[in-house]
Design a protein around this nucleic acid. Structure first.
Length: 270
DNA sequence: CGAACGACCTGCAGGC
DNA sequence: TGCCTGCAGGTCGTTC
């Protein structure tokens, strides 16, 4: 489900609802996520006030009055805010119950997500090596160009590498490369500074566009407010192999790059 | 150091 | 109807 726009959509929906509220109880029904949820988290979390909900890459940082909960949605996770908790559904792995009875409920069929506690997020190993935010000031064409010198890997794998830049997942990597006219297999080290300017621009643009539409709904994604995202209809190449390129009319091609499905127009992308 | 690949897990679509 | 295969929005850890 989630790439950066979907995680940010979740964050924006949830933040005003839970900020300032006190955690009554963390209820874990299924601890077997990507890493087992530490049972000690139950007593760590209880009684703390939620100071805010931030995001770093695709990690959500649920900040407490002391330390923070690190939440990742993995491939299929979602968080919903329930004023009046309903029946537990399949894959509802944990609840953060707030004083007053509302609940933040985590559902994740594939269990690739994670829940951890850290007293110091900045130095946490999962976060400390991450690259800049694509929508922030530290990211741009010059940065990408500099980091890519000498790299043999494909440009698609390069921009999907969280140590280079966070939050560019498979959908938006494909879309940004299409918009920038760059072939996804092109070696990262053999792309000009000028083309990187365009790519950085298009990475930002596609993420911002998706954010504006509330993210991309594939299969079953819904935001924290239960509404789907509407960006799917705007996708130019993703999952469109065989269909005509919106720009040139050439059939969109599918190839596997870095073990991930990749879509591109062989005429527009070089 | 960089790059490639397996691993984790369930659900669903499609072919037979 | 049921069984099998392949595929899915992420990313960490291991190996070369």
């Amino acid at each position: 489900m989630p790439e950066l726009p979907e995680v940010e959509t979740t964050r924006r929906a949830l933040a005003p609802l839970i900020g300032g509220q006190r955690i009554a109880e963390l209820r874990i029904r299924e601890p077997r996520l990507r890493w087992p949820i530490d049972p000690a988290l139950v007593s760590t979390a209880a009684g703390h006030v939620i100071a805010g909900l931030e995001r770093r890459g695709k990690y959500l940082l649920l900040e407490l009055d002391e330390g923070c909960l690190l939440i990742h949605l993995g491939m299929s996770g979602s968080l919903r805010y329930l004023m009046h908790p309903e029946t537990i559904r399949k894959h509802d792995h944990y609840d953060i119950e707030l004083v007053g009875g509302a609940v933040v409920r985590y559902n994740d069929p594939r269990r690739f997500g994670c829940l951890k506690y850290t007293s110091d997020p900045a130095s946490h190993p999962l976060l400390s090596a991450l690259g800049p935010e694509p929508l922030g000031d530290d990211f741009g064409g010059d940065y990408l160009w500099r980091r890519s010198r000498g790299r043999q890997t494909s440009i698609k794998s390069f921009i999907m590498n969280g140590q280079i830049v966070v939050g560019v997942g498979n959908i938006y990597a494909n879309e940004a490369l299409f918009r920038a006219g760059i072939h996804p297999k092109r070696p990262a080290g053999r792309i000009s500074r000028q083309r990187y300017q365009e790519l950085a621009l298009q990475i930002r643009a596609v993420l911002e566009d998706a954010l504006e539409s509330g993210g991309t709904t594939l299969r079953d994604f819904v935001g924290a407010d239960g509404r789907p995202g509407y960006f799917r209809q705007s996708l130019a190449v993703y999952e469109r192999d065989g269909q005509p390129c919106p720009r040139s009319g050439h059939p969109i091609r599918r190839a596997v790059i870095g073990q991930r499905a990749s879509y591109y127009c062989p005429a527009c992308q070089r």
